[in-house]
Amino acid sequence: MALIELKGVDFAYNGHTVLSGVDLNVEPGEMLAILGPNGGGKTTLLRLVLGQVHPQAGTVRIFGQAPAAARSRIGYLPQHAEVDPSFPITALEVVLTGALGPGAGLGFWRREQKNAALRSLERLEAGKLAGASFDQLSGGQRQRVLIARALAAGPELLLLDEPTAAIDPRGGVDLMRILGELRPAVTVVLVTHDLGFVSPHVSRVACINRTLSIHPTQCIDGALIDELYGGHVHLVRHDHDLVPGDSCHE
C-alpha cells in the first residue's frame, strides 16, 4: 500500500486552478523531492497531504486514511516557519513543543519528554544546541531545530517545505545527508528549489507546475527544468550518474 496516494486531485483557490489532475504515489521509506516554480502548487500539495485544505475533485489517502486522521503520524516543517526568531525559547523547548499533542495534561515538561526531545535534536546532530536560545542560532541551526521539532512525536512521514532555504551550501549538504539517514523508518517528502542538494538522496523527483509529472532523478536536466520554470534556470550541482536504458518518464 502506498503511504501517500493522490488520485485525480484538482484544487482551486478563489477560482484560480492551483493543481489539476494530480496523481501521486509515495512508497514507505522513500525520499521524494518536489520541484517547481513559486506558485506552482508545491506547498498546496503538502497542505493537501496534511488535510489543511481539501481537493475539489479526486482523493487523497495517507496511510490509507483521510489526511486529517493520519496527521498524528506526520511531521511537518512549514515553509519560512511562522515563528518569531526573537521569541524567548531554547532549542530544547522548541523541540518539546513538537511532542505536545491532545491529552498532554497539566504542569511542566517531564524528564522523559526532555530526554526524547534531546534525542530528536541529536538525530539532527544538534544536541549541543539544546540549551541555546533560539534567537542566537544561525539560519541552518534553526532549520535543524525545527526539523527536530517535526520529528519529536516520532512521525512515520516527514513533510519538509524548502528545508535547505537560507542555509549555506555546506549546511545544506549536511542536512540532506542527515535526512537521508532517517530512512527507511521515516518516509521523507520535501519541497525544494535546490535540486543540487537533494539529487544524491532521491531516486524520483515530482515536477509540479499545476500538473504533476514524476521523473527519475538522473533524468532531470536543464531543458526539463527550464520547461518547468518557464525560463532559464541555473542548475547548481548534479552529482548523479546517468544509467543507460533508464526510462525518464513515468
Partner: peptide
C-alpha cells in the same frame, strides 16, 4: 502555570500547534 506548555506552544507557533492536534 498549569497550562504553561500548551500556552508556550501556541504563542511560539500557533499553526504548528494546531497541526499537532492541540486545541
Amino acid at each position: 502555570v498549569l497550562l504553561n506548555r500548551q500556552l508556550l506552544a501556541v504563542c511560539f507557533d500557533q499553526e504548528f500547534a494546531r497541526l499537532r492536534g492541540l486545541s
